[in-house]
Structures are given as structure tokens and as C-alpha cells.
Design a protein around this nucleic acid. Sequence first.
DNA 1: TATAGGTTTAACCAAATGGTTAAATACGGC
DNA 2: GCCGTATTTAACCATTTGGTTAAACCTATA
Lengths: 200, 200
Amino acid sequence: MVEIELSTEEKILKAAEEVFMRDGYAGSRMQDIADVAGINKALLHYYFRSKDKLFEKVFDAKIQSFFPQMGEKFSQDIPFVDKIYIFIEGYMDLLLKNPYLPLFVLNTVNNKDKSAFIKKLPIELSRHVAQSYYAEFKKGKVRELNPAQFIMSLMGMCIFPFLAKPILLDMFKADNGTFEKLMEERIQELKLYVKLILTP
Amino acid sequence: MVEIELSTEEKILKAAEEVFMRDGYAGSRMQDIADVAGINKALLHYYFRSKDKLFEKVFDAKIQSFFPQMGEKFSQDIPFVDKIYIFIEGYMDLLLKNPYLPLFVLNTVNNKDKSAFIKKLPIELSRHVAQSYYAEFKKGKVRELNPAQFIMSLMGMCIFPFLAKPILLDMFKADNGTFEKLMEERIQELKLYVKLILTP
DNA sequence: TATAGGTTTAACCAAATGGTTAAATACGGC
DNA sequence: GCCGTATTTAACCATTTGGTTAAACCTATA
């Protein structure tokens, strides 16, 4: 493992991500971020002007690193069920690498001062899914259902365990390793559920 | 509509609930709560000593008003699928009356200073579900699956739209009324999914 | 090596925030 | 009506917090 010295700007973004994810916007302190980054607090303002601006940069970076990877997978010409399988696998893998992202995004979107951030989310993804569904439904390959409801269910099933992680760790007296194993198993279980729901 | 004058203590709890739910613990201000309650800020400390104590009282009250209603329904002697139907109906109805509760609870449980609050949650409910499932599985009445995974899925499907409500309102250009109708429809859709998943 | 420009720091500041206090007010029992 | 107790208030306090500033410190380059 080679230690590469990050630039000050990168150190700040990395630290800010860690602190904002853990403590939320209101709960985060600029001094905390500076401490985690190992730099002087004034540098935060030198590079990013304000807490708000820094938060937005962190949010944008996280969104960019997360969602684009999902979109492209959906344009392939394969059966709808297989697209959903690929979605589940890809999404769960991304979540395993970013377990705190769901709460972070949902909090931002529910924050009265940050509702404009909703526009940064890739809502067109769900339209792709719906289109994809109808094309296949016309051919009688999938059961009749409301695709909007289906997408909500799919996302809820994927995301929920990550939101409730502290509860689950307590319930199962589990550690991070056990949790990850549970999520790996979950991929197969969700694929089964989806098959049962979609098969006409 | 008769206007009943609440006691100061009740006014505080009502206001605190509103503000904590909307702004989260760290984002809430004691002065805000006092303003919403229409009283002097010192009264918050007179009745509840500190922000932490007030928050805990609000949390306890919310939990008490929410979960006990779910538990009792599960002890009846009816088929497992029907128990789940009742759960979905009851849970979704409660969520419609408390749309911000899920984010509130999940944030509390993920808050580094409030992890002890996990113990206040009724984790035994999920054990009831699991027991109930196995009793029925032995009789060959339900498909083989992991009940823990199933419960996570069920809760995720119910809760997710409420967490993502601002996103959905934006996506569908909808208002609160439309959202409620969508959730009423959702009850039927989820019952269908559950039937498809559980039927052997 | 002098110097100009970007970078880093300690010290500082004003506003906000949770919490306290002492005085004022309301109120029930005599 | 008087008095003791509980309630309410305005003013206050110490600390925390986001943000600023002026000086120190590189570092490249002419």
C-alpha cells in the first residue's frame, strides 16, 4: 500500500465526506472536518468559502460517483427480469461500498433548506425502468403491475437494511462482516422475490 | 372543532415533536420549539431540563404511540399470509398518519450520541413474525425463504416511499393528496407482492 | 537571491445557542 | 384579602460556531 499524499483540497473533501455522512449537515462542525483532514480550519474557507458550499461539493461528488454506474446498465437489450437482476446486483454492491449514502441523500432531500438538491438526482432512471417494463408487458412476458410501485418496492428492499443497519447489528448481535454476508445473501433472495413478482 | 387549551407541558411536547421531526435533533433550536409552542424558552428547561431530555421524551412518546398497535395484531391464530396482510394495512395506515416518523427513528438510531435509543425499539416483533413463519412453513403452507430477509423487505417496501416522499412529489409533480392516494393503492400492490412471494 | 504569488496558520470576531437566574405573575387554600 | 407555592418572563451568561484577517511561510522563477 503506497501512501500517496493528497492535495489539501482532496484531504478536505475526503474528511468532509466522512464527517457529513456520519453527523449530517447540521450535526457537522467545520472544526471537526479540519481535524479529520489534519489541517487548519481557515483552509476550509480558503478552498470552499462556506459550510454550505463545501456540503454541496461533497453531495455532488457522491452523487456523481454513485448513480451514473447504474444508468448505463439499463440500456442493454435483454429481458426485463434480467435488467432488474443486474440492477439488484449493481445497486447492492454500490451500497455495500457506500452504506451511509442512503441516509445521507434522504436527509438532504428532506432538509427544508436543501430541497433544491432533489434536482440533482437521476429521476430519469425510473422512467427507463417503466419504459422497459411496458415494452415487455406488451409481449406478455411480465405480470401486470404498476411499475412506479414496483420501483419503490425494489429500492426500498435494497436500501432498507443499510438505513436500519445499527438496529440489525444490535438485533443479530452482528458485526460488519456478518452484515456484509447477510447482504450478499440478500442479493439472491431479492432476485427470487423479483422473479416471483414479475413472472406472469 | 372545539379548541381545547393544552397544558404548557403538552404544548411543549407537541411543538417539540413538530420541530424535531422536521429539523432533526442537531438542526432543531430550543428557541424554535418555544416559538412554535408560543411560550417562553425558559419553560422548556423548567419542564424538561435540557434539549436531550426533551428529545428523549418526544422519542419515547412517538414510539409508544406507534409500535404497540402493531404487536397485538400478530398474536391472532390466522394464516401467516393474512397476518402479513394485516401488518401491511396497519403499518401503512400508521405511516400515513406519521409520514416523518421513519426518517426520525432511523436518524436517531444512526446518531452516534443516541445509539442507546435502539433498545427502545420493539425488536421482538420481528421474532414473532419469524416464529409465525416457521410454524406455517412446517405445514407446507408457505414457500421456503429467510424470514429475516423477508421482514427487511416488507419494512423496506412499506417505509421507503415515506422516506423518499419529497423526491416522489417532485417526480410525479404531485401534492399530499395524490401521495396519499398512491399509498392507498400501494397497500393492495404490496399485498399482491407478498402473496406471490409467500405462496409455495 | 530577491520577489511575487499562492498557501497555511494563529488569533480573532460576531452571532447563535443551550442553559440559568431573579424577579414578576398567577393561583389555590385559609 | 393574604400568603405560600407553582408558573412565567426578560435579561443574562458561557460556550460554541461559522467565518475573517493579517501575518508567516513556502516555492517557483527571473
